[in-house]
Design a protein around this nucleic acid. Structure first.
Lengths: 229, 229
DNA sequence: TCAAAAGTGTTTAGTTTACACCCATGC
DNA sequence: GCATGGGTGTAAACTAAACACTTTTGA
């Protein structure tokens, strides 16, 4: 039952955990160094206020765009934190989103408008401000869980990718090695990839490029198919 | 980056999707009939305001307790909705939680403090107020997804239960029949149930009662075990 | 011709699926 | 003794795991 006649004044913000995969299949996250108290000098997740009539997800997309110049990428709500004293200045409720982008194709123009902005590998994060370390942990956990039964891994890769790249991605996120033979057999048997061109100009046997066939996948889903790796 | 110096005044509420399993393995949800505009007469999820210094989950637990008299049960954040016009009276941001309780053991004392309160089977819901139909859909989807890879189903059953009850629960939530033989083999092989007494006084072969062995489960989890059904 | 990564064959162990059957009880 | 769930045996089909091997390229 919602009765907003007696309204609570609190700050509503949105933070973004922006995951990016670099050229060498390292999973990174975008952090911003705080320029003032509290936590001056510490690194924090990019975030900002939700405007008066702004949908939450729009706010998240806006922040993502402001910090990376990127739009039209995977973005999804992660969790809402509202512990009363998480910000020393007063009560702040923050809706956290996470986004997945590819660092090679996207021009990762981290507009350095006099703020320090940095991509940090997720296994080597600095000290984080507020409760952002907890949030990070949650985000990674969510990514780990979700990547296994939803085809979101493709969001981190370039449009066209090799099976080895895909496997590296899964190995990075899941934190364990996978058997090449079995990985290939399994993913190809799902029949949700379409073949593209051949990646030439490498000092070894050229690889077949694939892209995720969204339409085909949706079709299979309708018929009860479940992605699972 | 959170800087609450310029603060947005908006209403922050918490709603609860309270799932309950009745004696005949029907999955139900607790709804409240609205006594005033907007949506007067329509059914809605129980909810209420977050107090000034109240943690979000405490608010959810409080509402759950107020409506059902129940505490110390499974409760988890589901999603935060904040579409600008979802409440005709102004902007309301709602953090939705879902809870799992057992309707047989818990005294489901739906304190009828002059409000109409009702348990509705999830496959036969009335017209819902606000965007609560969307929220319900999300909650069911989450329950469906989560029940397969987290041992949360036990939260809906009494402390002691038979394997048939457990299977019925899974069949209800997943919406499909499961093979008795295979279900039993699989769940017992996980070795996370401990045997209890025998359920006597029934007009058929008495059943072995089991209870979920939380400690053992946590132990297995530490060693990399993943619940999966 | 060699290094490096792409890509394939095949065996074995384990799991899932499917079906059929027996068991213990109250009425 | 029969209806009603509780509970088990087992064969066949399918997957997963493991390992070793061949292929194609640039330098």
């Amino acid at each position: 039952m919602t009765n907003p006649t007696e309204s609570l004044s609190s700050s509503l913000t949105v933070d973004c955990v922006i995951f990016g995969l670099d050229a060498s299949s390292r999973l990174k996250v975008l952090l911003i160094q705080r320029g003032h108290e509290p936590f001056e000098g510490a690194w924090a997740l990019p975030g900002g206020f939700v405007a008066k009539y702004e949908p939450l997800e729009d706010a998240a997309s806006r922040i993502l765009r402001e910090e990376t110049g990127v739009s039209d990428v995977f973005i999804e709500q992660l969790y809402t934190v509202g512990t009363p004293n998480r910000d020393p200045r007063g009560r702040v409720v923050t809706v956290v989103y996470y986004a997945l982008i590819n660092l090679v194709e996207q021009s990762t123009a981290t507009k350095s408008d006099n703020k320090a902005v940095e991509w940090y590998p997720i296994d080597n994060l600095p000290q984080l401000a507020f409760d952002h370390a907890d949030i990070m942990k949650m985000a990674i956990q969510r990514l780990r869980g979700k990547v296994r039964y939803q085809p979101i891994g493709f969001e981190l890769l370039p449009e066209s990718f090799t099976l080895t790249q895909l496997q590296n991605l899964y190995e990075t996120i899941l934190g364990k090695e996978l058997n090449k033979r079995n990985f290939r057999t399994k993913i190809l048997k799902m029949d949700i990839l379409k073949e593209g061109s051949i990646l030439r100009g490498v000092a070894h046997r050229p690889a077949q490029l694939y892209r995720f066939d969204e339409a085909k996948y949706q079709d299979y889903v309708k018929r009860g198919f479940n992605f699972e790796l």
